[in-house]
C-alpha cells in the first residue's frame, strides 16, 4: 500500500475545514486522477500526501510510514521519496534550468555536493535526460524567467522526474499547456509511473484528460470524496453532480449589453 488515509480531516489555521473524514487507499503502481470543482480540496489533499501539511484528524500512511511520527533525518528521507509537481512551479526566476532540475535530488545529495553543484552543475547529463522526454532539452542552460508558463511547468515536472521519487504527486501539472502538449506530458508521466511501478496521483481540471490517462478517478467535492470509480464507470450523471453549482442557477444574461446594464443597476454609485 503506497498511500492510506483513515478518517483524515484537515482544518486550515484560519478555521476553514478543507477536508472531511477521508478514507482512501492507493496501491503500488496505481494511477489516480483527482477531479472536482475549484476549492474542493484537491490541492490540500495533495499537499497532505506530499507532507507539506499534516492532517488535523485521522491517520495518514505514506510508503508504509506515518509521517507524523517522523522527525529530522527520517522525515527528510521519506520526503526525498515523494515528488510533488506544483501547479505554478516554485522556481527562482534567475536560476538556470539545469540547476532547477538538479535541485530535485537535494534530498539525496550531501550538502557539500549540493553546494558544488550550485556553482558548477555536476550532472547536466542527468538533467538533460529528465528534460528530453518533455522536449525541453534545448533549454538546459536558459534562465527560468526566459521560459513561458507551459515550459516552466515542464521544468517543474523534469525536476520531479530527476528526483526519482517512489510516489509521484501532481497538482494540475498541465494547466498552462496547450491540449496536445498536455496530452503528451500526461503520457510521459504515466509511462514513467508504469515503468518504475510507482503510484501517480494527479489533480486535473480537464475531465477528458483525467478519463483518458488515468484508470481510477476520485471525485472530490467540498472536502469529501463524492465517488471513487474506475474511469470507464464514471458517468455523466456523476460528473454533473460533481460540478453542479447552486450559485450559478440564477438567470444568465444572453447578451453582454443587458448584463452590463443590469450590473450598473445593481451597483449604484455614490457621489461624495
Amino acid at each position: 500500500m503506497t498511500v492510506r488515509l483513515d478518517g483524515v480531516g484537515l482544518t486550515h489555521p484560519g478555521g476553514f475545514q478543507a477536508l472531511h473524514d477521508i478514507d482512501l487507499s492507493i496501491n503500488q503502481g496505481e494511477r489516480v486522477a483527482i477531479i472536482g470543482p475549484s476549492g474542493a480540496g484537491k490541492t490540500s489533499l495533495l499537499r497532505l500526501l506530499g507532507t507539506g501539511l499534516a492532517p488535523s484528524t485521522g491517520q495518514l500512511h505514506l510508503l508504509g510510514v506515518d509521517p507524523a511520527t517522523l522527525k529530522g533525518q527520517a522525515l527528510r528521507r521519506l520526503r526525498a521519496r515523494i515528488g510533488l509537481i506544483h501547479q505554478s512551479p516554485p522556481l527562482p526566476p534567475r536560476q538556470r534550468v539545469v540547476t532547477a532540475v538538479l535541485a530535485g535530488r537535494l534530498g539525496q545529495w550531501s550538502l557539500l555536493r549540493s553546494l558544488i553543484s550550485l556553482c558548477y552543475p555536476l550532472d547536466s547529463a542527468g538533467a538533460r535526460a529528465a528534460l528530453e522526454p518533455l522536449d525541453l532539452q534545448d533549454k538546459l542552460f536558459a534562465r527560468c524567467d526566459q521560459l513561458s508558463g507551459g515550459q516552466l511547468q515542464r521544468v517543474g515536472i523534469a525536476r520531479v522526474l530527476y528526483q526519482r521519487a517512489d510516489l509521484l504527486l501532481a497538482d494540475e501539472p498541465v494547466s498552462a499547456m496547450d491540449p496536445v502538449l498536455a496530452d503528451h506530458t500526461l503520457n510521459v508521466l504515466g509511462k514513467v509511473a508504469a515503468e518504475r511501478q510507482i503510484s501517480l496521483v494527479a489533480s486535473l481540471h480537464a475531465v477528458d484528460l483525467a478519463l483518458r490517462h488515468f484508470p481510477r478517478i476520485i471525485g472530490l467535492r467540498a472536502g469529501r470524496v463524492l465517488f471513487d470509480l474506475p474511469a470507464e464507470r464514471v458517468s455523466q450523471a456523476e460528473l454533473d453532480q460533481l460540478y453542479s453549482n447552486d450559485s450559478f442557477n440564477e438567470p444568465v444574461f444572453a447578451d453582454p449589453v443587458s448584463a452590463i446594464a443590469a450590473a450598473s443597476l445593481e451597483a449604484p454609485r455614490r457621489c461624495t
Partner: peptide, 13 residues
Amino acid sequence: EAGAGPVAAFCYG
C-alpha cells in the same frame, strides 16, 4: 518538502 536540508534549500531556493 522534497527532502532537502535547510542550508541546501536556502541556497537553491
